[in-house]
Computed example of a mutant assay.
Amino acid sequence: MASTAYRNHVRDVRASYDGRYLFTSGRLHNIVHMLRFNPHILQAQAQLGGKDLISFNKLLEGGREGEIFKEMKDLFYYSQLRFQDINRYDRREVTPKIPLSKIPFVMRALGYYPTE
């Protein structure tokens, strides 16, 4: 895996017509990066990972029944409450997804501090 970072936010990501390259552009600078992209490798990695990230559970102390997993689950639901307005009193919809914008809050609550 290769990673290219911008000092500020990425403004846009586009794929070439043949799907072999990704082009990214920064928000504040006139910089465009071209990355070679191989979707077959990503598909192979996804298959090795197993269904529903089960193979990653053993990487957590205590696995799926451990305290870290339970805390991550609580934080996931709490982030849904924040997204749906925590002061609402009506019935809420629980979904298996949270907005990408809430991921930094979950990561920080777990003790990992990614940059913006």
Rank of each mutant, 00 (worst) to 15 (best):
M107Y: 05
A46N: 07
L28I: 10
K73E: 09
F23A: 14
I41C: 00
K70Q: 13
S101A: 13
N30L: 00
K51N: 10
S25W: 00
G19V: 10
G49E: 09
Q45V: 06
G26N: 08
E67K: 14
R7Q: 12
R14F: 01
R7W: 11
Q45M: 13
N8I: 03
P114R: 00
K70C: 08
L53W: 14
K58F: 00
E93C: 15
T95Y: 06
K51T: 06
N8V: 02
D52F: 11
H40V: 09
D85S: 09
F76A: 01
I31Y: 12
D52G: 12
V106L: 15
S79Q: 06
A2Q: 09
Y17M: 06
H29Y: 13
Y78H: 07
L42F: 15
R36S: 04
G50Q: 07
P99G: 11
Y112R: 03
V106N: 07
L35K: 01
R88N: 14
L35G: 04
P99N: 05
F56I: 12
Q43T: 09
S101Q: 09
E71Q: 15
T4V: 14
P114V: 06
Y89D: 03
S79H: 00
R14S: 08
R88F: 04
H9F: 13
M34F: 03
S25E: 10
I86E: 11
S25K: 03
R11D: 12
Q43H: 08
F105R: 03
A15G: 01
M34A: 14
R64L: 03
L22T: 12
A5G: 14
E116H: 05
Q47D: 08
T24G: 12
S3P: 00
R7L: 05
H29A: 11
R7F: 09
G62V: 06
D12I: 02
N38M: 05
G63N: 06
V106G: 02
R11W: 03
L75Y: 00
Y6N: 12
D85K: 08
I68E: 11
D90K: 14
V13P: 07
F23K: 04
R14Q: 03
A109V: 10
I86N: 13
T24M: 00
